[in-house]
Design a protein around this nucleic acid. Structure first.
Length: 585
RNA sequence: GGUCUGGUAGUUCAGUUUGGUUAGAAUACAUGCCUGUCACGCAUGGGGUCGCGAGUUCGAGUCUCGUCCAGACCGCCA
């Protein structure tokens, strides 16, 4: 028997017991004629002691132990003479009677501690060692708990978890597909699913009126801190429901997770239309942990001879509470921030509402104190506030001001990761115009149902203004989930394809099986999917989802541990009827 | 496809602004001492292709160009 207890288990009441423990050597502290060893496993750390009561040959073995050796120890539990209240086993220690070295270890390239000395790259390369660290292990434990809660909640609500295929047909809409060559069907390829979208809709046609799946999805797009090429969704679909039913069901799920995991209770989640989110926060995923709402200022700023504002489509600003004391240097830094290529603004206008009631702005040449007073009134600004104003084309300037708003939120410490601001964003546009291709694309996906108020009339007259029955769940500025009511009527689906520039034939070619299925009695249905990795990160107050995935990829989509992707042999290529093309510089 | 930041002992970093003697610190590692440590302590020691390549120069870790790698972001992500 390798162990009678784990390394996190023994307490003061176990004193006097003969026990056997197995684990990794965390650290050895040699005090001369006395040696302490911290033994670690998944459950915790237990201190081992060798002193003059220890058999000499056993002590000699103890002296040879080095970090990360795997050992088995037999000994007696005894009370410590000096306790350690930092660990749960801190009241006891093991008087070592026998040590068995199970395996030795090379010196690890970084320390296996919460405050490791290892950098990201090194930790990825030796991910199996990184996972030994308590903080990383706890992230995976959190992930497991949340997955269990999701399964329990949905199972109790009569949802069935049904697996869908990973080797599927490629569809050109949406993100790039990862493709897999088929040996048995030369020159033909499978694709890995970007999501099980069409399969879950088929399951609705099949009568499984409540489906879910915690499932891997694959997208061959550039990565970010919150984007991995393979990631996990909580994918859900329901039949005989309207948008309201879906929002209520999954609001319940999210509330249940927060209640169980964090003991937090929330009232009804705030809702905001996509239009308002863009107008007041410049983003379809506004961070509502702080306010700093956009205020549109065309009427007070235009017509006074300041051509930058006079010529702009939109003049819009935010008010930073208590920031009128910002120095010239700080204001210049903000200007530099918005001028960075990532933000892309031309400049930034500030108006200080000083404590003495006077105004100081970067455009004093053009505006009288009375003008600026009106601006302040628009903002509802008080003495001591700083107003920051930008102008330009409507959508562009909103995006730029959004970047500034988030930056101010960071500077003013308004982004407490454990203060959760949750909202539904609803009424997304159905279609999105693409300048490059000169055509509309589905903003969500081509199966999303239009809002009945806008269909069919507006689809002909003003396609860009048609609202969809689509919704996102946003927490602290992160999109953690999204979904829609689906089209279940074949004619409506054909109209949609038409609007997207598909012919009936090309639509059939790509989505034929779904369209065929809809000819055999499709129920009204709707659903959504949550980004499970992001959800885990948010529960832990983290930004990067990598720490919540056991074996993640890096920025370039590489697995630094296994060094993949990598080349395959000529034999493999031959078998797959593939030939490589040289990379052009 | 683009913008920015970084690459120097096993590791994390300083040094680069202003080119100039033998490239430092902490930590890790090794050896010795130490009976209550738990970030143990003390002493000693080993450890460097300054990412790679080219250039400028009497001389390059330091300046220039190219390139590779890593990270953050923009585009992209139905």
């Amino acid at each position: 028997m390798y162990r009678t207890h784990t390394c996190g288990q023994l307490r003061i009441e176990d004193c006097g017991k003969e026990v056997t423990l197995s684990g990794w050597v965390q650290k050895s502290r040699d005090l001369g004629s006395m040696t302490f060893i911290d033994l670690r496993d998944r459950y915790g750390i237990t201190q081992l002691v060798c002193d003059d009561t220890t058999d000499k040959s056993v002590y000699e073995t103890a002296k040879t132990l080095s970090r990360e050796y795997v050992i088995q120890v037999k000994g007696l539990v005894r009370e410590r003479s000096s306790k350690n209240n930092k660990i749960p086993t801190g009241d006891i220690e093991i008087e070592v009677k026998d040590i068995n070295i199970l395996t030795t270890s090379k010196i690890p390239p970084f320390t296996i501690e919460d405050n490791t000395d290892g950098g990201d790259e090194l930790r990825m390369k030796y991910r199996y060692l990184d996972l030994r660290r308590n903080c990383v292990k706890q992230n995976l434990e959190l992930r497991h708990r949340l997955a269990m809660m999701v399964r329990n909640y949905l199972s109790n609500e009569n949802f069935l978890e049904i697996e869908t295929p990973f080797l599927i047909r490629s569809t050109p809409e949406g993100a790039r597909d990862f493709v897999v060559p088929s040996r048995m069907n030369p020159n033909q390829f499978y694709a890995l699913p970007q999501s099980p979208q069409q399969y879950k809709q088929l399951l609705m046609v099949s009568g499984f009126d409540r489906y879910f799946q915690i499932v891997k999805c694959f997208r061959d797009e550039d990565l970010r801190a919150d984007r991995q090429p393979e990631f996990t969704q909580i994918d859900c679909e329901m039949s005989f429901v309207e948008q309201e039913d879906v929002l209520n069901m999954f609001e319940g799920l999210i509330k249940s997770l927060f209640k169980q995991e964090k003991g937090l209770e929330f009232g009804k989640f705030q809702r905001m239309t996509w239009h308002d989110a863009m107008k007041y926060y410049g983003s379809d995923k506004p961070d509502l942990r702080f306010d700093m709402k956009f205020v549109e200022l065309n009427d007070v700023f235009q017509g006074k001879g300041f051509s930058v504002f006079d010529d702009a489509e939109l003049v819009v600003g935010i008010c930073a509470k208590g920031c009128a004391n910002y120095t010239r240097k700080q204001l210049d830094a903000l200007t530099d921030f918005v001028k960075r290529p990532q933000v892309g603004a031309k400049g930034l206008v500030y108006v200080k509402y000083n404590e003495d009631g006077s105004f100081k702005s970067s455009v004093d040449k053009f505006y009288t104190p009375e003008d600026l007073q009106k601006v302040a009134e628009k903002f509802g600004a008080e003495k001591g506030d700083l107003m920051l104003v930008m102008s330009g084309k409507t959508m562009q300037v909103r995006t730029q001001l959004c970047a500034l708003r988030l930056e101010m939120g960071s500077q003013l410490n308004l982004k407490d990761p454990f203060n959760y601001a949750i909202l539904w964003v609803t009424d997304f546009p159905l279609l999105e115009w693409n300048e490059d291709d000169q055509r509309f694309y589905a903003m969500h996906h081509p199966f999303t149902a239009p809002n009945p108020e806008d269909y069919p009339e507006k689809l002909d007259t003003d396609p860009g203004a048609v609202r969809a029955n689509a919704y996102d769940l946003v927490i602290n500025g992160t999109e953690v989930g999204g979904g829609s009511v689906r089209i279940h009527d074949r004619n409506m689906q054909l109209r949609m394809f038409e609007a997207l520039g598909f012919t009936e034939e090309s639509a059939k070619q790509q989505f034929g099986f779904l369209m065929s299925a809809f000819e055999y009695g499709a129920p009204p249905h709707a659903g959504l999917a949550f980004g499970f990795d992001r959800l885990c990160a948010i529960f832990a107050g983290a930004d990067n989802i990598r720490d919540f995935i056991a074996f993640p990829k890096n920025n370039s989509g590489r697995d630094l541990m296994s060094d993949s992707p990598n080349f395959i042999s000529d034999e493999q290529l031959e078998e797959l009827y593939l030939a490589l093309k040289p990379v052009e510089k």
